[in-house]
């Protein structure tokens, strides 16, 4: 029983009742928001997990072939081959609004669409393994971007869900019980006053009747 520190008056009672109605409505809305966000979050996080598994294995494979390629070529030749990329990635960021959480959406395109644009070097001084590993990496790229998008979305949604859950709990376990307790307290106090008033009136009436009776008895 946690009663707020307010005066037990009729005016307070009305305003508290109004607050209780608002709190109940807010609680219901926030709870719906939390449930819906949770549904969305679970979908996203499932996708996140699959993408991560996929990207991790693909990158590991690419790394392996890269190590082989590196072993076949000298450091200097390798660096020379990869130093100036002929490929450029255009990355656009859009914002998608999911339950008032703003999630980024990444869109990308290669400037050089055809496959030859992928390799920034001539074929003369480089090994075939290098071609392989670059190709492998370029195939991972779309997944890596999807991963970035879903992982970020999952993080942002998780933070928002946590906040919303706190609010829902604060309303459910603190504010609403406090309000109901206080309202009951005030109602009881007011009723008590009412009863006190009534007995006082009855007492006064009795005393008046007694006085009249005594006065009549003296006259008669």
């Amino acid at each position: 029983m946690a009663v707020m520190n307010v005066n037990p008056t009729r005016m307070e009672l009305t305003s508290l009742k109004r607050r209780l109605v608002t709190a109940r409505r807010g609680y219901k809305l926030l709870k719906d928001k939390r449930d819906e966000m949770m549904k969305k979050f679970l979908n996203i996080v499932r996708e996140n997990r699959e993408l991560r598994e996929k990207v991790e294995t693909l990158i590991e494979d690419a790394n392996k072939s890269f190590v082989v390629a590196r072993a076949m070529m000298s450091d200097a030749a390798m660096e020379q081959a990869l130093m100036y990329p002929s490929q450029k990635i255009n990355l656009d960021v859009d914002i998608k609004n999911v339950m008032s959480v703003e999630l980024p959406v990444f869109k990308f395109s290669f400037e050089n669409e055809d496959e030859s644009g992928m390799y920034p070097y001539g074929y003369a001084t480089t090994s075939a393994q290098l071609d392989e590993s670059i190709k492998a990496l370029s195939q991972v790229l779309p997944y890596m971007l999807r991963l970035a998008e879903t992982e970020k979305s999952a993080q942002l949604l998780a933070a928002e869900i946590e906040k919303t859950r706190r609010r829902v709990n604060a309303l459910e376990y603190v504010l609403i019980p406090n309000l109901t307790d206080t309202i009951r307290h005030i109602t009881m106090k007011l009723e008590e006053n009412e009863r006190g008033n009534l007995t006082r009136l009855m007492k006064v009436k009795d005393m008046m009747i007694q006085q009249q009776y005594n006065a009549k008895a003296q006259q008669g």
Binding site: F66, M78, P85, I134, L137
Partner: peptide, 12 residues
């Protein structure tokens, strides 16, 4: 260096 060099070729 070993892991990032390949990404350089992709324009990152």
């Amino acid at each position: 260096k070993d892991t990032v060099m390949g990404f350089q070729a992709l324009g990152m």
